[in-house]
């Protein structure tokens, strides 16, 4: 039991980062990015190809992060431009359609050009004993990176000028414009950040299990479930929901079976939404 809870925490932290990238973009600009998982996969693939070209793992992973950020930027500059000109529900719907289209295009290309490829960052080293449980070195490193990322995000949003600007746009876009903040610029930066977070998920995930090029949609779906449970637009919510669902997933996998884990996550999500329509930490409109 302790082992699967610990595994669940490792997974949950990654769920949280995954969902944070989605929920930020939604909270800031009312945009749901259904190609989010593909951004993660492409970043993983870039890391893989860079390593195959002879670059060591750490710089290759950094190049993967840059690729994720660049993809986010490209989305902002291209398919999201018509989305920004719509407001409210029309904006959400158009963003769903266009990013879904982009997801299919990326998926199709990857399956044609790089079928069966996958990033697998094996990290060697003796297992570490945590709370009497042996943890593989890969899990330990992945969790360490993820915890650092969470800390950096917290610092960014809580204490920096940029973080204040972003929070104010999330809370009241028109109000933020009146204090002198440019919401468009904030949206662009957040898409870059979101791409980097997607890349971090792909890279840390691949330290625990291979991330193959077909994983795009399941990553997006997983991210959406966590986002909805946490409350759309809430970053603390994303991390709380990530932990809860990560633990549920891992406990359910070891006692019931992996094949049912997505169903169990969906049920947990549905129950949360029935009890709390705004998600765990969502704000009521």
């Amino acid at each position: 039991m302790t082992a699967s809870i610990l595994d669940g925490i490792v997974l949950g932290l990654q769920f949280g980062v995954l969902a944070a990238g989605l929920t930020l973009v939604y909270g800031l600009g009312g945009v749901l990015n259904l190609a989010y998982g593909q951004i993660a996969v492409v970043s993983g693939l870039v890391t893989l190809l860079t390593m195959e070209a002879g670059v060591p793992a750490v710089p290759a992973a950094l190049i993967g992060l840059v690729a994720g950020g660049a993809l986010g930027l490209i989305f902002d500059l291209t398919i999201l431009q018509p989305v920004y000109r719509r407001h409210g529900e029309a904006r959400v719907l158009l963003s769903l359609l266009l990013t879904l289209g982009a997801a299919f295009v990326i998926d199709g290309y990857l399956n044609w050009r790089y079928p069966l490829r996958g990033l697998n960052l094996r990290i060697t080293g003796d297992p570490l004993v945590v709370f009497g449980v042996r943890m593989r070195m890969g899990s330990v490193v992945a969790s360490g990176i993820t915890i650092v990322v969470i800390g950096v995000l917290y610092w960014l949003f809580r204490y920096t000028r940029l973080g204040r600007a972003i929070r104010s746009v999330i809370q009241d876009e028109e109000g933020s414009r009146l204090v002198g903040i440019d919401p468009q610029l904030m949206m662009r930066l957040i898409l870059v950040l979101s791409g980097v977070l997607a890349a971090i998920v792909a890279i840390t995930r691949s330290m625990v299990a291979p991330v193959n090029v077909r994983a795009g949609f399941s990553l997006t779906v997983l991210g959406l479930i966590v986002t909805v449970v946490g409350g759309l637009g809430s970053i603390p919510g994303a991390f709380l929901a990530g932990l809860v669902l990560g633990i549920i997933n891992s406990v359910a996998s070891s006692y019931i079976g992996t094949f049912l884990s997505l169903i169990i996550l969906l049920v947990a999500a549905a129950i949360t939404i029935v009890i709390r329509p705004t998600g765990l930490l969502g704000v009521r409109e």
Binding site: R161, A165, R167, S168, Q171, D172, E174, V179, G180
Partner: peptide, 25 residues
């Protein structure tokens, strides 16, 4: 400009709200 309907940031303190005006304005 001060709008007809208040446009403040609900989860921040009064002081943080006002500081935004100085930080970005």
């Amino acid at each position: 400009m001060v709008q007809q309907t208040p446009r403040s940031f609900p989860t921040m303190t009064v002081r943080e709200n006002v500081a935004l005006g100085a930080l970005f304005g």
